[in-house]
């Protein structure tokens, strides 16, 4: 069982390492993740929201829907833990 797990791990790791060949080098300003959407956010987010912290502006405004359900996720986690564990009368 352990050898099988080790074998699967090494195989997956080898495939992933092979896949890293297609990624952009570290710290490249022209890499695909840095070229598409984020340039608009960096140039326009402060003008559109007056929030200098880009992470907060993105989190609260552009990705507000995401953040809302993030809060719902943590709320559901709390309720789930209460449902699973709590055994008090209060």
């Amino acid at each position: 069982m352990k050898t099988l797990a080790l074998l699967a791990t090494i195989l997956t790791g080898a495939i992933l390492l092979y896949g890293t060949a297609d990624f952009a080098p570290w710290g490249d300003p022209e890499s695909p993740p840095n070229r598409h959407l984020s340039t608009y956010y960096i140039e326009q987010a402060v003008k559109e929201t007056h929030v200098p912290n880009l992470v907060t502006a993105l989190l609260g405004d552009y990705r507000g829907y995401d953040t809302m359900f993030e809060l719902v996720v943590i709320y559901c986690a709390g309720m789930g833990v209460i449902a699973v564990l709590r055994r008090s009368d209060s």
Binding site: T49, G60, D61, G64, G78, I82
Partner: peptide, 24 residues
């Protein structure tokens, strides 16, 4: 208002996270 709305929303997030962490 967009700036203020982000702040109001953050207050809600802060309240929720505080209580859930303590309850966990």
């Amino acid at each position: 208002w967009r700036s203020l709305g982000i702040f109001l929303v953050e207050v809600g997030v802060g309240l929720g996270v505080m209580c859930i962490m303590l309850s966990l």
